[in-house]
Each structure stands twice: as structure tokens, then as C-alpha cells.
Design a protein around this nucleic acid. Structure first.
Length: 274
DNA sequence: TCCCAGGACTACT
DNA sequence: AGTAGTCCTGGG
């Protein structure tokens, strides 16, 4: 067992729509990160962490939940630029941007296009159960997300069998492109947001929304962000700004390098606030 | 049974 | 350059 200081909001960070494959189990959340199954339980002052593997566990947790970044400082900087977002920021206090694996994020968000959350989770779980390595934790079976090499052996029909629908060919082609080095996920770390967007959108099945999600959630490029219906609603209600182009112009010029976070706060506030 | 929600591509203007 | 139609699945 590992104990870390509870200085973030575990529940909203996990459930706010960044990740698709988590399990809520009584008071705990189970997530599958890299090579292990991790159970997190929130207590008053601590988060209790259990896993099938304890080497480097603290580093993995800090990296995944982005616990070394000073979010208060970012919030102050956003507020300096715009005070009207205050309620959304206060509501989202403790929310972290999860640092996800690029390959899993790529596959997840390709599946997410024109799809609902339950269906996305279902497909990702099937892909993992069929092709990922099994890990037993507390007497139950879990499956790691499969490697590129493993998934490169699948046919289009194999993907279709995992209920991904018309996205089957996108997954197949993009994975082949990784194998033959036309798509290099590592090279994206060194690109700026704009170039990375263009690079990803060259591949069939990746449009603006999917590319933005990948860059924000896997590469922590905070100047890039998706605009979805909740963000549109927020912008219309609070700023009277409509249309994706207008929203993007306003967001990028106002929040600059913190746009992705500002958008996430708006999304979280609008989607969850009763 | 049908209808709908949800992004990106294709095939038109 | 802009856009209607289409692709699947799961749930109402």
C-alpha cells in the first residue's frame, strides 16, 4: 500500500470525461496505467493506493495525475486574463489534466468520433480483453491496453468485432502507418500545438476534435483544445459568443497557452453543475 | 420498430 | 470554400 497526500479532486479528475476505461468500486476508482492495475481510495487527508506492482508506483501516479504542476498558479494566470471564468475555475478546483499514453489516447479518441461514452468504453474494454495482457489484482482479471505491435496484427474485421463500427478501417490504417513509420507518435512531443494538429489531421479518421483531444490529454499541449457542445453552451450563456470559429478566436487570444485548461474548466462546470 | 446522438470523410456544388 | 449525406452502435 502507498499513501499520498490528498491535494486534488480524484473523483472529478477521473470521471470528467478524459478517460474511458476506469472502474468505480464502492469508494474506490480502479485505473489501468501502463503495466499495472491501480486502485485509488480517497480519504480525508490521503489517497490510498493499491496495485499489483509497486516499483515506481509513486512516480507513475504523480506523472499520470500531473501532480507536480502548480495548478493554482495557472488559475491565477487565467483569472488575470479574464475574471468571468471565476465560477468555473472555483467549481473545478482540484481538477487535473490526466497525462495519458499517446497510443491508447489515439485509439480511444478515434473510436470516440460520433460515438457515446458507454459505447467507447465498451469497445476499448473489448480490445483490451481480446488482445491485452491479463493482470490479476485482488482476485479479479484486468487487461492492459495492447501494444502497437499486438494491434498491428488485427484485421479490419477484428476491429469491427470489437463494435467500433465504421471506424474499423481508420484504426487499421493508422496502426499500419505507425508500423511503417509514416506516423511517429514520439515526434509529436517536439512539435508546437499548431504543427502537431496539422500533422495528426493528415491521417484518415483524425479531425479537429480528435486531434485536439489527443494533444491535450496525451501530450499536455495546453494551447490546443476541443470545442464541444458544453463549451459552446458555456460560451453562449456567459459570453454571448457563438460559432466554433468565434469561440476559438476568443479562447486563444484570451487564455493563450492556458486555453486547454480554461476550456476544461468550462466543460466541467457546464456539464456537471446543477 | 423506428429514431436519435455523436465527428469525420466523401462527393458533390 | 462550403456543406448534405453517410457511416455504426446502443439506448429511448
Amino acid at each position: 500500500m502507498l499513501k499520498i497526500k490528498n491535494n486534488f479532486d480524484l473523483r472529478s479528475t477521473i470521471t470528467c470525461g478524459q478517460i474511458f476505461r476506469y472502474i468505480e468500486d464502492n469508494n474506490s476508482f480502479i485505473v489501468i496505467i501502463k503495466d499495472r492495475v491501480i486502485k485509488l481510495t480517497e480519504e480525508e487527508d490521503f489517497i490510498i493506493i493499491e496495485s499489483n506492482k509497486y516499483d515506481n508506483l509513486k512516480e507513475i501516479i504523480y506523472d499520470y495525475f500531473d501532480l507536480n504542476r502548480d495548478y493554482n498558479k495557472i488559475a491565477v494566470n487565467i483569472l488575470k486574463k479574464d475574471d468571468k471564468i471565476k465560477n468555473a475555475i472555483e467549481y473545478s478546483k482540484g481538477l487535473k489534466m490526466i497525462h495519458q499514453d499517446p497510443f491508447e489516447t489515439l485509439i480511444s479518441y478515434i473510436i470516440s468520433q460520433n460515438n457515446r461514452v458507454s459505447s467507447i468504453s465498451n469497445s476499448l474494454n473489448m480490445i483490451s480483453a481480446n488482445y491485452g495482457e491479463k493482470v490479476v489484482f485482488e482476485g479479479k482479471d484486468y487487461y492492459l491496453f495492447p501494444s502497437v505491435q499486438k494491434l498491428s496484427r488485427l484485421t479490419i474485421q477484428d476491429f469491427r468485432n470489437c463494435k467500433v463500427g465504421f471506424r474499423d478501417k481508420y484504426l487499421y490504417e493508422i496502426i499500419q502507418n505507425i508500423i511503417n513509420k509514416k506516423l511517429n507518435l514520439e515526434s509529436i512531443y517536439n512539435m508546437d500545438g499548431e504543427d502537431a494538429l496539422k500533422y495528426l489531421m493528415n491521417f484518415k479518421g483524425i479531425g479537429m476534435k480528435v486531434a485536439s483531444c489527443i494533444l491535450l490529454f496525451a501530450y499536455q499541449k495546453f494551447d490546443v483544445y476541443p470545442v464541444d457542445t458544453w463549451v459552446k453552451k458555456f460560451m453562449k450563456d456567459d459570453y454571448n459568443i457563438e460559432g466554433e470559429n468565434n469561440i476559438r478566436n476568443f479562447t486563444s487570444t484570451t487564455y493563450k497557452e492556458y486555453s486547454g485548461l480554461a476550456i476544461q474548466y468550462m466543460f466541467n462546470y457546464k456539464r456537471n453543475k446543477k
